[in-house]
Write a protein that binds this DNA or RNA. Sequence first.
DNA 1: ACCTGAACACCGTTCAAGT
DNA 2: ACCTGAACACCGTTCAAGT
Lengths: 194, 194
Amino acid sequence: MAVSARRGTPLTVEEIRSTALRLIEAGGVESLSMRKLAAELDVNPMSLYHHVANKTELIREVCLGNVAPFLGLPPDDGRPWQDQLRALAHAYRRLARTQPALWTYVHNHPEVIEPKEGGLWDVLFRIMPAAGVPEDKRWRTADVLHGFVSGLLLAETLGHISADQADETYETAIEMIIRGLPEHRMADPAPEGP
Amino acid sequence: MAVSARRGTPLTVEEIRSTALRLIEAGGVESLSMRKLAAELDVNPMSLYHHVANKTELIREVCLGNVAPFLGLPPDDGRPWQDQLRALAHAYRRLARTQPALWTYVHNHPEVIEPKEGGLWDVLFRIMPAAGVPEDKRWRTADVLHGFVSGLLLAETLGHISADQADETYETAIEMIIRGLPEHRMADPAPEGP
DNA sequence: ACCTGAACACCGTTCAAGT
DNA sequence: ACCTGAACACCGTTCAAGT
């Protein structure tokens, strides 16, 4: 046929991306195949390659298009850094819960997202000075905080944490981090507050 | 031939497991294929199925055989709980650094290891009472602690943390956890209070 | 008992050919 | 410009056949 073997409309990258996301969330990234995706779109498997370079690039585009924007970064609204950190933590969890399969993939392939996870690091670096973390410790502190939070979210995503305790567990962890952050200044013998 | 197309010796599960581990650490779990493993062993791909049920089961056996024993759980030697927690954290990191590919797989497929990661949880539950964590909060606390530590180790495994800062970062995190554990007793979420 | 070749139902991707 | 079928080099796994 002239345009395609399916309904009149030609293939769009948008259509490819959204269908790929749906399949990924339905069965995990590892269950996505170009051939299944093509079948879902009622199209020949090879037609996809006219719109995306390859499978890796497709997954990367799905990540970039759906992870970063979703974070909806809390703006610097002048609230105390504790509240801003809570807001960031909740946005990050919302992402993990809304698109768990995609989030898991990004968690294990952080290189697909540059700059790092849509400004998440910008927000951290805005918060840390207010929390009294000395400048030379901020990169390390950011890594620890992100490792903490994403480790906990993976445990939740995997069902490792019972659903009825997940909210409470997450709040517990965030509060522990918030209290520990300025008190210990990530384990530095602390002078007095800001 | 009678015994095999390769050197006289017949295939052993031991040989299969150790070769699988080597391939996994060389290229990640996702790069292991039954056909490549067979090639590495100079044997027909189908011969493997006489010794292992399938690929999933093989990976599970490699995990069980190499992760749990490696932990070398610190015994209850009467030292302060802080020291015991440090010893556990270091054993866990040693595992992640010695077999990063296998550790990453287990991190994302915790169900393959039952009972959970070779008594790691037993040690945690031995430590928490000494740290003053009330009984009804111990499961939640254990999940948070494990989430924290494994999240940080994944960041290190992925190279997300610069190598020359990794030691210091890990120590920093462990000390923060040790100080935060009894002080806050994994405190109840502040904003959600009773 | 242990090994094997052929076969089946899948993959991602290339390439020349169709409209 | 966009789509397609055939083909290539891979997968995991089954099964009947070999020694």
